[in-house]
Structures are given as structure tokens and as C-alpha cells.
Amino acid sequence: MNHAGMDHAAMANDAPIPQGPPPPEAFSGPTFAADAFVGPEKMAASRASVVRAVSGMPVFWFQADRAEYRAREGRDGYLWDVQAYYGGDIDKLWLKSEGEGSFGEPVESAEVQGLWSHAIGPWWDLQAGVRQDLTGAERTHAVIGVQGLAPYLFEVDAAAFLSTKGDLTARLEAELDQRITQRLILQPRAELNFAAQDIPELGVGAGLDSAEAGLRLRYEFTREFAPYVGIEQEWKAGRSADYARAAGEDPSVTNYVVGLRFWF
């Protein structure tokens, strides 16, 4: 392009952009002018699609955070810890399930949760719903909790449970991914369980009921598929340990785990 004939002085002296509101005639046309050319139904669908894309299109996500074989003294065992959600950036429906047991014996514990989740900040969701225990003295619980990312990238899931029997309990889980390489990740994990009262039929004592601490080393062949190995220590505390001893159980158990973490 030949710029020689351009009046740069005139361009430099152009009037400034007005700072006031738009003139009234700017609003004199139709609200959705394209409706007259494309059709109101097609344009309404197009606008709704844009709103979904901007505000968070509903998606489905599933993750098996822990699906593992547990080698330990006595009978070896297994554990699952899975969760899924459907929804957008602000509101989601969460489904969670976890449980464990020993091979050749009935399932020791199993539960499923259905939760409504609402974002209360960039990193945190408030969750409320129902939990159903599937083994032992089966109970239904009301649930309220938070899930999100704490400072220093700790993934935290904390919840309180009130059962139909009036039992008040709580659970706090936290884990942290420490990248050794882009594919090799060391994950420390801890879990604490509390109870507001003794629950003898469940072998649960008031105060700190149990604690778990472990390390898992996983290798991500892809982000969605990662086998792991690790070790985890479980403790019963206080009256819960007394209940375990009375039932002939060891209140302290070491698990050597091999598992798979995957999501889609």
C-alpha cells in the first residue's frame, strides 16, 4: 500500500471519541435485527447456544480416584473410590461412591452419595444432599460439605453427615499431587473421620474415630489412565480402637496397594 498520499496530520487531529452515552437513535431499531433475515426460531436457538457456551455447557465427567488391590496381614482386600458429576461451571449434580472389604468376606463398608453442588468461589463448591450406607447397620444421612482446591494445591473434600438415627459424623480428605516428572506423580493422601457421639453398633467412638495416611506413586501413560503403587496406614482411635479390639480386629493396619486411576 502506498502511504505517501495519506494526510497523517489530519488523522492526528481527528475528534476524540465521545465519552457520553449512545444517542437515542442507537436504540431505535429492533432488539434482534437478524430475526427478520434468518428467522426468530433459528436465532433464538443460536443465542441459547452462545449462552450455554459462555456460562458453562453441561458436561459429564467420571473419575475412579482409587480402584485398588490391598495386600496386608491376614486376608488381602480391595477398595474403590469413584465420583462423577453432570453440570456446568456453577451448578452440578455429583455422585460419589466408596467402599472396601476383604476377599472371601462380605463387603466391609459401602456408600453412595447424591449431591447438589454450587460454586461459592473460583476454587470451592458447596455441596449438599444425601448419603446412603449399603452395608452393616444401614443408615441414610443428610450431607453438607465443601470440595475444592486449598492453597498450595491441596485437593480437599470435607463433609458433615447427620443420620436418620441422629448420629452426627464428619470426614476430611486431602491429597496433593507432587510431580517428579511430567508423567510420574507422587501423591500424599490423608483422611480423618470424626463422630460427635459413641455409635457402638457401628464400632465408632466419640471424637476422632479413625485416620488414614498414605503415599501413592502413579505413572500417567495418558492423563486419563494412570496405574499406581503405594502404601497406606490405617488407625482406629480412642473408643473406636477399643471396639475394634473387642471384635478381635487390629486397630492399626498397613496396606500395600496396587491400583488404577482413570477418568473420562
Results as ranks from 00 to 15, higher is better:
T164S: 14
S210P: 01
R131W: 02
D198H: 10
A137P: 06
G129A: 04
A196Q: 12
V143E: 00
P200W: 08
A170C: 05
Q132K: 14
G166M: 08
R139G: 11
L168H: 08
R131Y: 03
T135K: 14
A206V: 14
L208W: 04
D177M: 04
D209A: 15
A190G: 15
K165T: 12
G203L: 10
I180H: 10
Q132C: 07
Q147T: 07
I185E: 04
G129M: 03
I185L: 12
Q182A: 14
L153D: 15
A128I: 08
V146D: 01
G205E: 01
E155M: 03
D209Y: 05
R139M: 11
G129N: 04
Y152S: 09
I144L: 12
D177G: 09
F161E: 00
Q127R: 12
Q178D: 11
G148N: 04
I180T: 10
V156Q: 03
I180Q: 09
L162E: 03
I144T: 10
V156S: 04
G129E: 01
L208P: 02
R189D: 03
A196F: 10
I199V: 15
G207W: 04
V130P: 03
G205K: 04
R131V: 02
E138I: 07
A190E: 03
F154C: 05
D125Y: 07
S163T: 11
D198R: 07
A150P: 05
E155A: 09
A137W: 05
A190K: 00
L172C: 05
L186W: 06
I144S: 03
Y152I: 11
V146C: 02
I144D: 00
L153M: 13
A195D: 02
D167N: 15
D167K: 03
R139H: 09
A128E: 05
L192A: 14
G207R: 04
G207L: 06
K165G: 12
A142E: 06
A142H: 05
A190M: 14
Q187R: 13
R183L: 08
P188A: 11
D209V: 13
A196L: 13
W123M: 07
